[in-house]
Design a protein around this nucleic acid. Sequence first.
DNA 1: AGATTTGTGGACGCATCAGTCCAGAACCCG
DNA 2: CGGGTTCTGGACTGATGCGTCCACAAATCT
Lengths: 197, 197
Amino acid sequence: MARPREFDEDAVLDAARDQFWATGYAGTSMDAVAAATGLGKGSLYGAFGGKRQLFLRAFDTYCARIADEVASDLSGPDDEAYDRLRAHIRAAAAGIAADRLHRGCLLAKGVAELSEHEPDVVARSRQTLERIAATLAEDIRAAQRHGDLDPAADADHLATLVLAVLRGIEALGKAGVDADRLAGVADTAIDLLPRAE
Amino acid sequence: MARPREFDEDAVLDAARDQFWATGYAGTSMDAVAAATGLGKGSLYGAFGGKRQLFLRAFDTYCARIADEVASDLSGPDDEAYDRLRAHIRAAAAGIAADRLHRGCLLAKGVAELSEHEPDVVARSRQTLERIAATLAEDIRAAQRHGDLDPAADADHLATLVLAVLRGIEALGKAGVDADRLAGVADTAIDLLPRAE
DNA sequence: AGATTTGTGGACGCATCAGTCCAGAACCCG
DNA sequence: CGGGTTCTGGACTGATGCGTCCACAAATCT
């Protein structure tokens, strides 16, 4: 047999993800990734193939994680579905406002940089956003069942709108819009959701 | 006296902007800018100072232009203010959906790449977005005066929400979400705006 | 223990990068 | 028309980039 790996692949992916997150795809050198992960370049290239593939793997794990987080935030009994939705929107705005360094979301940053030239990044981003939209729609339907949101409203349309608002808050936050305004967007969006009679 | 410039500064800035737009800040070499503008590097550095300053100038002109476009879209008499707002939101979604190459908005792309390390880009983005928000608020107030939107609603809050929706549509579009869903977000947002009784 | 196979890290090669420099060109003014 | 000044383009520099390569290490199997 052969020599086993000395590193944990997930930990390396996390470190590489942080590096790409901080300096972008084009702005990140493989030497920097090697330094951040502690691996030599031989190991890095042997295990992941190259910069592009490494980025895609790190990006994938990030996407899966944020979609899981939303699913976790929004899962629960019907009678708390509306509260969960409000809390999620407010927490998203608060979290973005708290990110004073404007690091933002890697999905947003990655797709902004690479959407024009990397269809794989676009496809992965789209899947992730649609999974989040489906999670939101599920929660909205639960809130409709429980009588908090108007059952006549189209849950999928509302969910996509909420998703757009969430991504919009992220975009505004990265542009330096202040915390109060971000919180205001969250509250205004919640207020406009159609309540059941 | 001295030899005059052979190039038009605005045309050079436009060409440089397109190059940065296509390949990002870190991904754009000054040789590529020189090729795109037709200038030699001596002229380029002599006229603009360096990569960073050139980007900032191109970014500034882009920001000013898009804010002007929104102002132009939304200016007019009160009795058409609500129509202008709806048309603007729908046109934004349609325009983003039509951008099949996912080029997106340079403001979004630039701030996504540089927000963490370039306060000047953040400041300029914030100013631009706040100017757009003010334009939206002005139009919303006009629609309130004319009796199309609920005068009890806070125009500034609504405007910031609409801005977030617009930036969210841009983010979704860059991630490959299809045209129908983008149009749906626009329509849903419009439907939720509080109409006057 | 020796052979075999895979992992490791850093030196290396070649391309490219931002920015400088300079020799010549273009212009205005006296 | 010649001198002074700025513009121009491309050669050049030192640094850095991605990816390869290789000598050595660590493990298993016989």
